[in-house]
């Protein structure tokens, strides 16, 4: 995907635009099966948006599209007001779109230090990334030469987050951050998310369990069956709507 699009110039991230990331009427499909049926999501600059919904709702697919890994079959993707539909993941990443994918977000056969070095494509100095990451997660510093694949499930998730938090992204997208993590760590990570959001980084967080994110989110989007069911201010999201979405009914 990325090779075909190297010709287009990497978008310059203009953080003065009111909307940092926008998906407009986006459709996407795996083979012939469409799983996103025209969704519209906007992430206002400097805010935290929670993307919620049950298993199979299309949240991961939405993140894949927004990060440039998956092509859209309809609609448009905008970053900082600029149309980036069809631009590859590599270019978007270099322009400051930072994604922590669902499940493993690490390279198992690289050491922790090497994993962090991979983050330097974003333009941040490699030493700086390493120092920041080790300061945030002392556990990683102790294990710096251990292969990431031999870390426990949760330690791998920490490493993935460390990379994301240390590269000074324009927008950060986190898919199921809390999966497999101890409650304490989840709490700490969300504090960090809130902290970098306070520094002006925009964040899109995907979760299945609403409660953990709603504390830090400004806005919420609820998806089911590849469509957006509800969106609005996080405070306005009422429990009934969530429960009914999860149970599948209207």
């Amino acid at each position: 995907m990325s090779e075909s699009s190297t010709a287009s110039p990497p978008p310059t991230a203009d953080t003065t635009s009111p909307t940092i990331l926008a998906l407009r009427d986006v459709r996407a499909a795996y083979g012939s099966i469409e799983v996103l049926h025209g969704i519209t999501i906007e992430v206002p600059t400097g805010s935290v948006v929670a993307l919620l919904g049950p298993n199979g709702a299309g949240k991961t697919t939405t993140i894949s599209v927004a990060s440039g890994l998956m092509p859209v079959t309809g609609g448009a993707l905008e970053i900082a007001g600029q149309d980036v539909t069809g631009v590859g993941a590599t270019e978007l990443a270099r322009a400051g779109v930072c994604t922590v994918p669902e499940g493993r977000g690490v390279f198992p056969n690289l050491t922790i230090t090497e994993n962090l070095l991979m983050a330097s494509y974003t333009g941040v100095e490699r030493n700086e990334i390493r120092d920041l990451a080790f300061a945030r997660f002392p556990r990683l510093a102790e294990r710096r030469d251990q292969l990431a694949g031999t870390l426990s499930g949760g330690e791998q998730q920490m490493l993935a987050m460390a990379r994301a938090l240390s590269t000074d992204p324009v927008i950060l997208m986190l898919d199921e951050l809390s999966m497999g993590l101890a409650p304490k760590i989840v709490g700490q990570l969300y504090e960090q998310v809130a902290a970098i959001a306070a520094d002006g980084v925009s964040v899109l967080v995907v979760e299945q369990f609403a409660r953990s994110v709603l504390g830090v989110a400004d806005h919420a989007v609820v998806m089911a069956h590849g469509t957006v069911q509800w969106s609005g201010a996080a405070n306005d999201l009422d429990e009934d709507l969530l429960t009914s979405t999860y149970l599948g009914g209207p």
């Binding site: 995907m1 990060s67 890994l69 590859g88 590599t90 990443a93 983050a119 494509y121 974003t122």
Partner: peptide, 9 residues
Amino acid sequence: NLAELNGAR
């Protein structure tokens, strides 16, 4: 995919 998400080619 992860390598691309990191900005590598």
